[in-house]
Amino acid sequence: MNGYQFYWSIVWDSLPLLLAGAWVTIQITVLAFVIGTLIAMPMAVARQRGEGWAYRFSTGWVELSRNTPAVFQLYIFYFGLGALHINIPSYAAVLLSVSFNNAGYMTEIFRGGLTAIPRQQMPAARSLGMTGPQSFIHVIFPQMFKVIFPAYVTQGIWGMLNTSLGMLVGLQELSGATQYAQSASFRTFEFFLATALIYYLIAKALQFSSQLVFRLIYRS
């Protein structure tokens, strides 16, 4: 190791800073997950319709979010809007770009789930007197979420990984906080190894808790 001495106590000392960053990461992850879901639900329905302006709009969104790097999307929200004199804080920029990315990927996941639901469900719900939105909320979507759940959770974790880009725009989420903390000592390896561990734990916690939620909702 070229006589390199590992020095872990310095990481231990700045643990509160890292945990504060982890809290920001969790906030953005959860918010972007919820916002992405809310946008993706109507877009998936529009995508499945296959015509009209709503279809073209959501197709454009999906292709744009899936075929460009997440870092490009973040730069558009941070530097791009900044160049138009719309200065948003880096927290908002990360939140918007991760939500944008989530919404695009989730739309495709939801659309895949919608194709798995029998066609008769919709007319059946409508014939019971439900309106269009009602039948989606009470009949179609609950079944869809059951089908797509694993892919949906994976996308949520993917969104969590994407929040680490906040480091590039100076946001003090977990990566940014680590970058800041290590800059006092340049013990880069020790700090980022600890951060990798925290990310791993967050990912596992998200996976575990979402499985718990799934079991609670779809008790079977």
Partner: peptide, 15 residues
């Protein structure tokens, strides 16, 4: 699969 690419890059660099 559960650690961001940016962290993996930094770790590869420093390691």
């Amino acid at each position: 699969r559960s650690v961001p690419m940016i962290i993996q890059l930094i770790l590869a660099n420093s390691f």
